[in-house]
Design a protein around this nucleic acid. Structure first.
Lengths: 377, 377
DNA sequence: TTGAAAGCGCTACCAT
DNA sequence: ATGGTAGCGCTTTCAA
């Protein structure tokens, strides 16, 4: 296992030049049969594996598309301990996998597979260098908004996008007329649909929003919710800068604004003796964690209080009660991102395009409307 | 958007040498502050992204680990049309995702993430070149057995493993004292546990195995099943070379052996008037498809016939009836593979190691033993 | 059809 | 602390 064999080794063993070796692989029919066989034989004998790096260098461009996903466990503090840290292999738990990111990633992979491109999955970037490092290995990069706008990470994207096509899965606070491409769900429409259903159909009046407003997607939803409530003459939900529980009728809980406690803590602090008509959660994960806690404390959903989610992840369909939620076309979002990047890799356009995919209101048991059969047959 | 800026461009703009540019990025503290700032500034200005290819070439070795997964939809012909081809974005369906491969992949990704390595996901190889191409981009490669031993794909692995560390997720018919590493579940123990439960607890006598024996894992399970039955003085299940339905008492269905019809066809052909005591399926996917079909044809599971699966994928827990199955520690398998590859990338060992992870019998509703609550709280 | 040789962009060693 | 420079392994003209 000395050195990785190279074209030179193969060439020598086959008694040809390196150019011929390369040709034997890349343009098999421009090489005499016997020569090609000799080369291939030599290659096999040596265990020759062409260096992707060298190839990429020489040709410019790898056929790889990148996906930079953030830490899947970011919000796992919402879960009960057993499921929180899946280091040991427990039984599959839909509260842990697949989540929003996983579903998008799957779409991304499917599209790449279909286009014969491979996928590079990179970690949550901790430094600007992580970003450039990853961007440097791919022909295009899709990026989830880091929940925390880490030091310089957002800035470096602005620089990198000049060189590498980038798709953002959220507005992420950047202006809309730049080189970034954007793929996102119709947060606005989805959020309004939820409010319309809760207020118009269920006659809900006191609504509480649950979600970290530092997340761009969540913020968009919150704004739409607030506006939709105002349209109906209801008190707008108060907004806290980071994590917050906001009650339409009693928004005097200033601690939320100040300490930005995590959602788990906020949920634990909810007073079960003074419940709103409905909790409007910024994500399914939050809704599920909330219902779990409420149930433990003797509060029944939807009998005592309505809970809605957002995303439409698998867990929202298979856990009971099933969630009333807004489904994002997650796989489609992933596919769309991959499609854009593949196209941009071919010939790059100057300005970014934005694709907003429709969302769907899904009625589940958590508002009292839906059913939740998962029976086979 | 002319040419990708290079070290030379940055060096020129910053008024330093390329070596300094490189240092400014790789060893920030061995460069004077002002110099570093100048370099970083120039880089940002140009949208400089260091070429991963060039870096990999120069340093030898990318920090990337590869996972070559086979087509997720291979067995999708088992599913009803709506779920079969997820090109359009439907609601999440546990029969389609996450499957066995996805769960393993997730473990692989988690381990890589933890180790600061990124992941390269490659497609089902169609040619030997696909294999070398992908192997050439990574420091190590984990491979699922291609369901079909495509032309030369298996052979080329034998050659490639001399150069690139490879983990196989199944025996795949290769000898055990080669350079391949192997990570697999205890198929043997799991299969025996199922039979013990069915025969000893449920007094099942007539068992039918359902699965394509061309798949190495399935074959292992089948062999263990047969042996375990023999131990109890029961007629062994007959084996067909490829896809097959084998009835312990009536193994005269020669067509199965000859035409190797796919599982979907075999399921469709099952006579509901002459059911065995239990169907022992080679995978959860098969079991789920079977139950779906049986239910449609008026057969109740487990009342009329017992069905067992294998894998313990999420769907086996959330669909009704829940499956009696053998859970493989899928995420652990993925993690283990990544761990081995990461270690081998550091310093390679001469001979391959084999890790066999334990399986667990899970009692579900499909044999009449388990319950299937998915309630929150 | 095949060979020679010039890069591709970066790193790291050796000087300074 | 910084610069010069020789590769890393492959592709790809251009010649032969």
């Amino acid at each position: 296992m000395a050195r990785r064999p190279t074209v030179y080794d193969v060439a020598k063993l086959a008694g040809v030049s390196t150019a011929t070796v390369s040709f034997a692989f890349r343009r098999p029919d421009e090489v005499r049969d016997s020569t090609r066989e000799a080369v291939l034989q030599a290659a096999r004998e040596l265990g020759y594996v062409p260096s992707g790096a060298a190839r990429g260098l020489a040709r410019g461009g790898t056929g790889v598309l990148g996906l930079q996903s953030f830490d899947l466990l970011t919000e796992s503090d919402l879960l009960s301990p057993p499921a929180a840290i899946p280091v040991d292999d427990g039984p599959p738990d839909p509260r842990v996998f697949p989540l929003y990111v996983d579903e998008v990633q799957r779409g991304f992979e499917l599209e790449c597979r279909q286009r014969g491109r491979s996928v590079h999955i990179s970690n949550d970037p901790r430094t600007p260098q992580d970003v450039t490092d990853h961007a440097g290995r791919v022909d295009g990069l899709a990026v989830f908004p880091s929940r925390a706008g880490l030091s310089g990470v957002a800035d470096v994207l602005e620089s990198v996008v000049r060189t590498v096509p980038i798709v953002l899965f959220s507005m992420g606070g950047v202006s809309a007329d730049d080189a970034f491409h954007r793929v996102q769900a119709d947060n606005d429409g989805g959020a309004r649909a939820v409010i319309a259903h809760l207020v118009d159909h269920h006659r809900a009046r006191r609504l509480t929003f649950l979600g970290d407003l530092a997340a761009p997607d969540y913020q968009e939803r919150f704004i739409a919710i607030t506006d939709e409530l105002a349209t109906r003459g209801l008190a707008p939900l108060a907004a806290a800068s980071t994590a917050a529980v906001n009650d339409a009728t009693a928004a005097d809980d200033a601690t939320a604004t100040q300490h930005a406690p995590d959602i788990a803590a906020i949920i634990a602090d909810i007073s079960v003796t003074n419940l709103p008509d409905a909790f409007v959660c910024a994500s399914d994960q939050i809704a599920i964690a909330l219902i779990e806690q409420l149930t433990r404390r003797g509060v029944s959903v939807p009998a005592d209080v309505i809970v809605t989610g957002f995303d439409g992840i698998l867990a929202s369909r298979v856990l009971r009660p099933t969630l009333t939620t807004v489904r994002q076309p997650m796989a489609d979002m992933g596919r769309t991102a991959a499609r854009i990047l593949a196209e941009e890799a071919e010939n790059r356009s100057e300005t970014g395009r934005t694709v907003i995919l429709p969302t769907t209101l899904v009625l589940g048991e958590s508002c009292g409307c839906g059913s939740g059969s998962t029976e086979l047959g």
